[in-house]
Write a protein that binds this DNA or RNA. Sequence first.
DNA 1: TTCGGTTTTTACAAAAGCGAACATATACGG
DNA 2: CCGTATATGTTCGCTTTTGTAAAAACCGAA
Lengths: 253, 253
Amino acid sequence: MALSFRQNEILDIARTEGRVVVEDLAQRFDVTLQTIRRDLTELSDMGHLDRVHGGAVLRTGVVNLAYEQRRHMNDGAKAAIARACAAAIPENCSLILNLGTTTEAVARELIHHRNITVVTNNMNVANILTANPGCEVMVAGGALRRSDGGLVGELTTQFFEQFKVDYAVIGASALDRDGDLLDFDLAEVRVSKTIIRRARKTFLVCDHSKIDRSAPARLASLSELTCFFTDLPLPEELDRKCRDWGVQVVVAG
Amino acid sequence: MALSFRQNEILDIARTEGRVVVEDLAQRFDVTLQTIRRDLTELSDMGHLDRVHGGAVLRTGVVNLAYEQRRHMNDGAKAAIARACAAAIPENCSLILNLGTTTEAVARELIHHRNITVVTNNMNVANILTANPGCEVMVAGGALRRSDGGLVGELTTQFFEQFKVDYAVIGASALDRDGDLLDFDLAEVRVSKTIIRRARKTFLVCDHSKIDRSAPARLASLSELTCFFTDLPLPEELDRKCRDWGVQVVVAG
DNA sequence: TTCGGTTTTTACAAAAGCGAACATATACGG
DNA sequence: CCGTATATGTTCGCTTTTGTAAAAACCGAA
């Protein structure tokens, strides 16, 4: 559907001012508040503006919100998984923490580990671990992704190539019946693959909501990992596969 | 949920000032203290700010008192210098922002520049510029220094070697009578040298308190730079040297 | 530690903004 | 000219936001 003359102008104003106010617009166009409200809801439905009380603002960081929400999804399960994972990581060692909200939870649980070196491409992890004086933090270089504070891209891969650590902790967006780890972003997958290659042991942290889902890019097979930390027992089929592959499964309660 | 007008503005203020005070905001927006408090708690719940008694501060990730204090030293002068420097940087270009509180101030002033690429080894700069959707941020890899969120070391140098940008903005701990830029940390100096080499033009931002001081490691000579932004006229001798070298001096008022 | 002042929290009432339903007006095709 | 479709105006109950005031928590100084 095409935008009305007025809606176009509203959008113009929003773009120059950064925001629009219902009252002002009503006065300016000499129409009732209700009419303006209708315009604004339509513009916001179409994704051009974000509606706020009293008016609307330009839509800036849509993705950011999604991340904030995701960060708080399944909070309890994530914390439990993270605790179990952190418990399996000794002191005096080196590890890589990859992107993902669950790996961030792991970082929080590592706050009291001493003499560890953490290499990460997750700005949030770096920020969290600043609080641990017993932890040397190495930040991977790369392009910063606003949506989640992730560093990705060729430069990031190159950076990880220069390391060899004891443990890697990775997440995944999806885990299918075949035991393949999947993700949405190809650039991110490339980084993850490098990380796995550069670690002696790899831990997957991933809550049950990711199981039996799908995503386009294949990251690795569960069979390549050392241990899988999750919050609920696996489906029978997957569980058997893990046993066959010798992948330890830890269900955090 | 989208942020209200006022919350957006509060965030803007926080990003430029580094912190906000409940009383001031209430007065400024002409609402009650309670309303401001509600805004702040929401912003802090969403992870944009950290609540403190009497107001809120930007979430930096760096927890170092000495640095926090230094950050607020000479605030006014720094902001003026930063404004002048940002004004000299066009849109649609690439630049490197080095460590230092004054370069951070420059980052704050770049918040509305569009289509720029910023490469930085300063986590705070990266955090600040996340707020600018018109800015691609590249974070340099390296060892994270807790004291100031700086990334330094061999890996950082390597990272910068892979770039060639239009502008570099650097700070300095000291600037002596000979016009030599000095610093305390050798690792940091190595990074800075690389940065200068990798930029077509180099801007120094440095308030008058650094002039005529000393520090052990030599970073560069003023003669190698393009422009020097400061807050007070230089001593006669240094000023003449700059003229001889063809280094533009901008005194920000 | 206690104390006094300030800031925050809590709870509820007032105000502002909102959307839905329906009425009215205007435009357009037949 | 009529009937229909679309846009706008009007009203009203509901939700969100804001103000107010008292209680609780906090902070710094004695």
